[in-house]
Design a protein around this nucleic acid. Structure first.
Lengths: 339, 339
DNA sequence: TTGAAAGCGCTACCAC
DNA sequence: GTGGTAGCGCTTTCAA
């Protein structure tokens, strides 16, 4: 059976308080006792129970990461960055894939509370923001990554989505595109909305407007992107968009697949630009031009903010905005025919 | 502050035992008291503490998943499958990325024990199997996924790696290849070893042998695969392999990149076949022929085995072997010149 | 310095 | 049916 603090105390001939003290480096213990206790712990292969110590008002050293889907490379990469930075500081990570469903979000949020996580990192959207209320009421630190929660005072780490959208547009415009379309995520996803907004803004500056049907809302799956792209690209060449701005790499891949299915060449017949610069972007056919998010620094940053908040609750919340970067690969080029 | 069982009891005018009872559906409680208590819990927004209940000898409803790297799509997909099946049964998942480093494995294993997880799912390799001993001594259920631990009685869910290797070889041989090479993972990875073995076995049956330098050990990164593939493909056409069997999709992507860099056409100049059939395989240039692992069923299965073990320790451990499947895409074809 | 003892929130046993 | 109570393993006063 597992050795407890009692076993150690008994074996070492001291009180449990003494053992607790050497573990936490608190109180005053003579060097010899200290050494003796340490030795006994070693011998018994003693592992202090985080559970018990958490119950005593301490921390669980566990964080919750709530994202739409851990199997989505973007979030998987975020998870890794968060895990590493957390691990560095002694924290473990519970992952929660919500599929962007409020009902799953709620269930996970409740679960994380019951498990007394020390803090939560939210990277998923949710329709009903009130779900976060009870958590904040209980003073459980919450930080956002790659998503924003308007009207809620929360530390937030995001990439400048608006600028990312603008970068996309500038790139496409510089290439000579005039007829474009957008594969957006669900409209409740703020980051996607901002990207679209930035894209349209720069288009507007260049005197280009898009018809309503040129902005398609998709879920965040490849299949969905493909379906919407198909309906966009099936149009006659004269009205078909010559470039597709996709709000994430998965959608861009769907677009690539749609183009292939329709025997359209990329980028000659249609340019495709993604967002996120996940590993996927570097392996597609052709390699995807995309807007990079600095995932690792974002993950580090968000954990740092969370731990800072953990140490000392603060009224003013930071909003860290990181700069996106245009990564030009081979899925974008000048349109073959004048649009 | 958070409401406790005492708050509920007081507000409802009953004992904490009564509250505990209705929560766990045990004991006997009159319908009216029951309703009253439920109502009070609701009103106070009471969330029972898993921590406290765990301390009372119950479960933590938390599982640990130990894999090399959660940002690797293969493991990310496994994680999702495991998370879903676990969530279904009320369990949360702590992820642990080890980078296949024993020191990280050990640290995580210790951590998971201290956090009193109910069970662990191991999908990472480790040099020193003794690390698992203390865990098994403590009777913490452990199951393996996509990896084997020889000499250790553990439930295991794997794909038939040997057969997968054979499938690869058969496919390549049928295409007419004679000079082939292998990008293997580190030799300590049993699954990789089996794949190589199966591949070589079938080659042998066809009277084909490989030189020692034709089997390269890599880590599991794209960069590594690329480097090894480069050194393999840089050879003069007369001796250069016409096909590369890669023990996972990441390595295969590295091979694809190496070929591209050397201006070799795939599959005309060199065929590439991967393993795992992650999302990556479907988006490469050209799309990757690969051996599919049934990831989702494997994840489900492994959780089921773990929970079964949790319910009732059993002496005989199962070894579930799932059948791999050859997915032919466009990275393999007949060699352009006779080898 | 050191240790006895009071909880932390909950479960389960047992007496009423 | 119902509630009192003894822990679970650990932290933290507070006396000694």
């Amino acid at each position: 059976m597992k050795a407890t603090i009692y076993d150690v105390a008994r074996e070492a001939g001291v009180s449990i308080a003494a053992v607790s003290q050497v573990m936490n480096g608190k109180g005053k213990i003579s060097e010899e006792r200290r050494a003796e206790i340490l030795k006994t712990m070693e011998r018994l292969n003693y592992q202090p129970s985080v559970i018990a110590s958490a119950l005593t008002g301490k921390k669980t050293y566990t964080l919750g990461l709530v994202v739409p889907d851990i199997s989505n490379p973007f979030f998987a990469e975020i998870a890794r960055a968060v895990e590493d930075q957390g691990h560095e500081m002694g924290y473990s990570l519970i992952i929660c894939s919500t599929d962007n469903k409020d009902e799953r979000v709620e269930r996970y949020l409740t679960l994380l509370q019951q498990k007394s996580v020390d803090g939560m990192i939210i990277g998923t959207g949710m329709d009903n923001k009130d779900m976060l209320k009870p958590i904040m009421d209980r003073a459980i630190p919450v930080v956002m990554i790659a998503r924003e929660m308007q009207d809620l005072a929360l530390h937030t780490v995001v990439v400048d989505d608006f600028v990312g959208g603008r970068m996309s547009a500038s790139h496409l415009i510089a290439l000579g595109h005039k007829r474009m379309a957008i594969l957006a995520e669900h409209s409740k996803v703020t980051s996607s909305r901002e990207r679209v907004k930035g894209f349209l803004h720069t288009l507007g500056e260049a005197g280009i407007t898009l018809s309503d049907t040129s902005v398609r809302n998709c879920s965040y799956t490849v299949e969905n992107g493909k379906r919407e792209a198909l309906s966009l690209l099936e149009q006659p060449a004269a009205v078909r968009p010559t470039a597709l701005f996709c709000c994430n790499d998965m959608l861009a891949i769907g677009a690539l697949q749609a183009a292939k299915q329709l025997k359209l060449r990329v980028p000659e017949d249609v340019s495709v630009i993604g967002f996120d610069n996940t590993i996927l972007a570097s392996v597609t056919d052709p390699p995807l031009t995309t807007i990079a998010q600095p995932i690792e620094p974002m993950g580090k940053q968000v954990v740092d903010l969370l731990l800072m908040e953990l140490k000392k609750r603060s009224q003013d919340k930071q909003r860290v905005v990181m700069r996106p970067e245009l990564i030009v690969r081979q899925s974008t080029g000048a349109p073959a025919t004048q649009g």
